[in-house]
Design a protein around this nucleic acid. Sequence first.
RNA 1: GGCGAAGUAGCUCAGUUGGUUAGAGCAAACGGUUCAUACCCGUUAGGUCGCCGGUUCGAGUCCGGCCUUCGCUACCA
Length: 646
Amino acid sequence: MPKRYYLTTPIYYVNSVPHAGHALTMMVCDATKRHRELRGEEVVFLTGTDENGTKVAEAAAAAGETPQAFTDRISQAFVEAWRKLDFQYDDFIRTTEPRHHAAVQRLFDILREKGHVYMGSYEGWYDVSAETFVREADLVDGKSPDGNEVRWVSEENYFFRLSAFGDPLLAHIEQNPEFLQPEGRRNEVISFIKQGLRDMCITRANPGWGIPVPGDDSRVIYVWFDALINYLAATGWPEAGWEDLWPCDVHWMAKEIFTRFHATLWPAMLMAADLPLPRTVIAHGWFTFGEGGKMSKSKGNVINPDDLIQKFVEAGCQPELAMDAVRWVLARSVPYDNDTNFTEDSIERIYNADLANDLGNALNRALNMAHKFVGGQIPDAEPEADLVAAIAEAKAKVADAFDRHRIDEAADGAIGLVRFLNKYIDTRAPWALAKSEDPALGAVMLSILLGLRASEALVRPFIPHAADAMAKQLNLAPLTDYDAIGTPASLPAGTKLNNPEPMFPRLERAKPEPKPAAAPAEKAEKKEKPKRGLPEPAPEVSIDEFFRFDLRVARIIEAERAEGSDKLMKLQVRVGDIQRQIVAGIAKQYAPEDLIGRQVVVVFNLKPAKLMGLDSQGMIMAADGPDGGAILLEPDKEAPEGSRVH
RNA sequence: GGCGAAGUAGCUCAGUUGGUUAGAGCAAACGGUUCAUACCCGUUAGGUCGCCGGUUCGAGUCCGGCCUUCGCUACCA
């Protein structure tokens, strides 16, 4: 079997419900699939849900459900959401399926046999919620940097020898410019790898949910290690026949899971197993919602695809066309290097300009003219040369944009033909030709209709139902062959045209609110931003917990700036008769000569650390200054050196 | 702190290897048209291309420095 074009979205983690961000990735893949199929290619589009992980087991327990019932329910929510946008994936993989389990265990075995997976021990803090290990130094008030609860774990686990793949990965990235995109992200990966990859712990104690390590039921495979393998599992690997899909042509995803997972861990896993690497791994940016705000459920500014569809239905769209309107707006807004603002305002503007004013109106006016001027049928005439040229140009532009994975440009290329068509209509003015009974009328009307027919096919990957509606109004079967676009055969003379029916009613928009005074006010607000409120109170601790900190009065006897750092000061302090070196981030506020001889308070039993290659045995206590700088604490009068501070 | 990206019209962005008067879409003003969904078409206005310096006959483009924003990353607290 010949190789088929294979593209994927990530599998979505079942801890959240579908939102516009997921829909964006889906849209990009769905449009790509439909476009390539128009060009006669066989395409397989994979999506699915990620359902393993300790967190899922715990979330299910919290919801009073079995993990299976819980994941069935959430997974179904994604299926439903995608049905409402008519995303035509060919396969939906769930990581709880036997085919996935089989592939994961097989790959694990292969890596273990080849010596890329070894048993090691891990002792340290574990963030259950994020399912990641947290270094001691990164703990904040006994919690992970994200504020999650951590627990101390001490266990033997399997490790993947990721560290061995840095150089091969860099070489591959170097030799394959198309591998990682866009370029900015590619650079990010290169610098990430260059600073050294660490082996990765890829198993966890078995919580009764997940994929057991082959031959060792006491452990399950780490959810990320397992999740990535879905792309391979869906090809049927390791059973025969997978080569007609693998290697994958494109893995699409949002930027946050690009660098560490899809651009580093996953290719390393494949290399380790001697499997081919995907041709292209590409990340899009995020939607932001409103005034520079990130997508945030608490702000209530998240735009839900369902609500958007509803909005267009209320505006008067047929349900299927309302769905298309959402699809179009998504495709036109795909962020690449930067994030993009996705707001009611931008959505309405895109809809009105492209779909209502340009596309909808072009179809409507053309059909009206055909009924009035040429008897409501497709004239028997030759299309005019500049119109034919415009179609060819648009075809090439759309195909090229898709080949470069620029979905927004492809949509622009498609609607560009419609814009040209509106100008052409005005320039050739069929109503004037009709009035003067000019013989060019037939050719002009034929050209206009041919332009519409071509537009139908070019917008089809984005708005398939609108394309069908266009074909129906032209009384023709849908045009589904890219090569036929713009040909006389695509528009048989004599075809009786149907009556025009508006597809996308214009959205009436509130007049843009006049806010000349708003700009300076905004600026002022931004400048005053540093005056933040009282810092959040830390969680309550008991007196016993407090006494675990051994605070002492110490005297600074030497001070010098740490080489190569403008923040760090290297200090020698005396605590009673003990001398210690402490490295502190106070060099911006204090000069060495200000410090020598001073009494300060130090944390005496802090775990030693290395900063800029210097040992630091303790910490100097200081208050946060208004600019974030340190203000040293000093006893009110000379205190006995080494005395405890309570 | 390090690395990277971005900074071009009111908004969103395009500007190839340096080469005339810096472009598009949206928004605005004006005009035109009547086939059409108050739409479409045209014209106009609007830019010291973040700032400073350099290379060059010539810089949005190349080089150096700085500022701002964002991302990644190290560290500090």
